[in-house]
Structure formats: structure tokens, C-alpha cells
Nucleic acid binder design. Structure first.
Lengths: 173, 173
DNA sequence: ACGCGCAGTTCGTTCAGCGAACTGAGATTG
DNA sequence: CAATCTCAGTTCGCTGAACGAACTGCGCGT
């Protein structure tokens, strides 16, 4: 039994969801996929997760149809969010907002904006300019007040995310 | 190191949140607190969680100011959600909705309604009748289409939740 | 005084996470 | 074409958390 497989109890939707994305590291992997990470090495660089654990989590997420494994150059695989995986965005956003609200003394490290009109998004994903709920594909991540200055030991992924970046788009060209 | 303490990486709000509520069982305990469970025995009956683990999780949630330990009759303690803990409701709701949407073939086991006008709430907590976002204290849980018939091995808590019940209110009188 | 129920604690076993080292396939270089 | 490099995993020994059954200890009812 892994961490959350078998919440034997009466199969509430929450228990079901936690069986898929409730294990350690899993939601952080999903978050990074929203940021545009796709390759094995990008995840290890950004998360400092043991490689064996990453392998296991990616396999499980593919199995659960949250990520899809797509063949890439040099016989490698990449991992991208499926349509089902993209519906996890409200989950990631609400947890992130809760953490920022209660633990980010200097404010959030990253903020989200509507690509079309540059309006800031609130914790429900609603744009302050146009008043609509913005889909993840029309969202841009920008550095927030809580993001410290660049450091020498920043990994390549953190460095790439210092510039505004459209969600879901691969980090490199 | 427990399961999610130390997501050493760059302290994103999500990582912070997962350090508090990301361990196995923790969000299920919080969900049950929203349903009105308050006593140690209620949690063990409903969750089938090892007692030592429950003790550890309750202590950590009290320490994190998500639950408060309040003295009750017979020298016992009860655990109730703090104001900070109640702000976790959007998190619990979004995960629950995701699980229901993708894994509840017969529909959700429980639905939420606005106490004042009995309007059903959508996954954002917005009432279909009055159009407003409803606070957790004005929400009622009712049985949904996915809830099976009563069974002999239902625990007392499951049995109590077969009737409509206002969120946060203790189960017994 | 005795027994009961609730709320934990203790303890031995098992299993997942950790991290460092290893493997192997493809590209890159001399 | 051989040697090297990079990337993507796999292997493996260690440690620590989860599990679950048994035990403790307090407060109440009789």
C-alpha cells in the first residue's frame, strides 16, 4: 500500500481525489506541469525529489490520465497535462492561495494575470479587469513580491520562471 | 522528517500548504471536522485511522492553528475548526468536486445546499437560487445520488450523516 | 468497590521515502 | 569510429513513518 491508495472508508469524492493526487510530491509535480515543466530532469532539478520516487509518481499520474507521456527527441519522453489533469487547476490554485494567505509574510512568490488584458486574478481565478473566470491556458505567471532576488544556486527552472511565462507552455524553445 | 514537512525547495504557497495539510489522513480529518465531528472516537469510527496516527495528526493540526482543542465533559477534549481552519473549505470543496467529477459514477455521495433558500451549491460554492457564494456556516450537507442504502456495518457517524446536517454543527445533541 | 467506555500510548512489524551509485541509450566530440 | 557526455531511469541499503493490536489510565455509573 502506498501512501494514499486504499482510503477504504466510504469513498467520498475527497478520498478518491486523494488516492490520485494525495501522495507526497504528487501535487507539486502537477503544479510544475502547469508551469510548463515536461521533462524528467526539469522535475528533479526543480523539486529535489528522489529519482525513484519521481519515476513512480509520473507512472501513476500517467496511469490515472492526469499526465500523458509523449515521445520527444532523442528517444526521450515528455509529460504533459491531459484535459483531465488540467481540471486540477482549481485544486492547485486553492491550496496555493491558502498557503500564501497564511504563510507568505512577504506576499506570494508568484502572481497570476489574464493574458488578454493583464488583469490580476484573485484566488478564484477571476480577472479584476474583465470580471471573468480565466482558463489556465489564458493565464500568465509573473513574479510576486515574495520572490527573493536571484541566487547563484537557482536551478534553471527557477531562473526561467523569473520572467512572466504563459501557463502550460514548455519552458524552453 | 514526516511525510510533508520540509519541502525544502523554494517555499511556494502550495508547498507551505502541503506541509500543514498534505500528509496522509490530514485533509480527511479536516473534512470530517467540517461535517461536525469533534471527538477522538468519532474520527476513529469514521476514518478507520490508526489511533496513534490520529493523535499525531490532531496534535499537529492544533499546533498549526487549524483545529483548537477545547475541554469538554468528563475531562475529555474536543477538536473544533478555528477561523484559519475554516478557510480551508475551498480547498476541501475543490478536491471533493474533482474526485466526484471524475470518479463518482453514480454521482456525488453528498451534496451541499444553502440553508437559507435550499438552493444547491456548485463546485465554487455558489448558490443556484440566490447566486451568492455561501459561507460554510450557512451550508447544509444532504445525501446525494451516489450514497448507497444504509448498511448494518455503517458506523454511527455515517448513519448520522444520512440526514441533512448543517456544516460545522456537532453531530450529537 | 467494581466495571465500563473513552482517549490516548506502547510496541513490533512492514513498507515507502531517501539518496547515492549504477546502467544503458543517444547525441557529441576528437 | 571510439571515447565521452547527458539524460532517464533502476538498484540498493538505510531509516523512519504507518499499521494494528494490546495495554494504560482516567472519569463515570451502579
Amino acid at each position: 500500500m502506498a501512501l494514499p491508495r486504499y482510503y477504504t472508508q466510504q469513498a467520498c469524492g475527497l478520498a478518491r481525489a486523494l488516492e490520485v493526487v494525495g501522495e507526497r510530491w504528487t501535487l507539486l509535480i502537477v503544479r510544475d506541469a502547469f508551469y510548463g515543466l515536461r521533462r524528467f530532469g526539469e522535475f528533479t532539478a526543480h523539486l529535489e525529489i528522489p529519482r525513484a520516487v519521481l519515476t513512480e509518481r509520473l507512472n501513476r499520474l500517467v496511469e490515472a490520465d492526469v499526465l500523458a507521456r509523449v515521445p520527444a527527441a532523442a528517444g526521450r519522453s515528455e509529460y504533459e497535462l491531459t484535459a483531465k489533469g488540467r481540471t486540477l487547476w482549481p485544486v492547485v490554485r486553492s491550496l496555493m492561495s491558502w498557503g500564501d494567505e497564511h504563510y507568505a509574510v512577504a506576499g506570494p512568490r508568484r502572481l497570476f494575470r489574464h493574458a488578454a488584458d493583464d488583469g490580476p486574478l484573485d484566488e478564484r481565478g477571476i480577472c479584476a479587469v474583465c470580471g471573468r473566470e480565466i482558463a489556465i491556458g489564458d493565464t500568465v505567471v509573473v513574479p510576486g513580491p515574495g520572490l527573493g532576488p536571484p541566487s547563484d544556486d537557482d536551478d534553471a527552472v527557477s531562473a526561467a520562471l523569473r520572467d512572466p511565462h504563459r501557463m502550460l507552455e514548455p519552458l524552453r524553445d
